[in-house]
Amino acid sequence: MSEKMSVILFSGTADRLQAAATIVSGAAAMDVETHVFLTFWGLNAFRREQTKVPPPMSPEYGELGRAVGEMMIAKGVPSWRQLIAGAKDLGTVYVHACAMTMDLMGLAKEDLDPSVDDVIGVGTFIQLSEGGRTIFI
């Protein structure tokens, strides 16, 4: 088993954030060092002001997406934010914000969720992810 995993989190829809956070939790549990690189909509979802508004489901699943979203709330599935916080608490998980997206959106580190560790360029992320597996969500 590879002992390092990197997740490029590009998407900002609730279903994809949930899938990414669940996989990150599993990696943390299995003692795999995990690096999450937040870019574009993935980074947007980690803005502090976004915490008040739940992100939408992916539109391509239409009615089914909405139904699954409601089911997740009804069944008390922990939110992706809680999963990321729990994973960081349990294992070795780093959350990195993409410097380019920060610049594009006019954001500072203080504008982001406290689970974000630092702001790095893509080159640094490539270095950090070397020797492990990388997934794009």
Partner: peptide, 8 residues
């Protein structure tokens, strides 16, 4: 708890 909650 939901996956992977029980393991955690």
């Amino acid at each position: 708890s939901f996956c992977p909650g029980p393991l955690m």
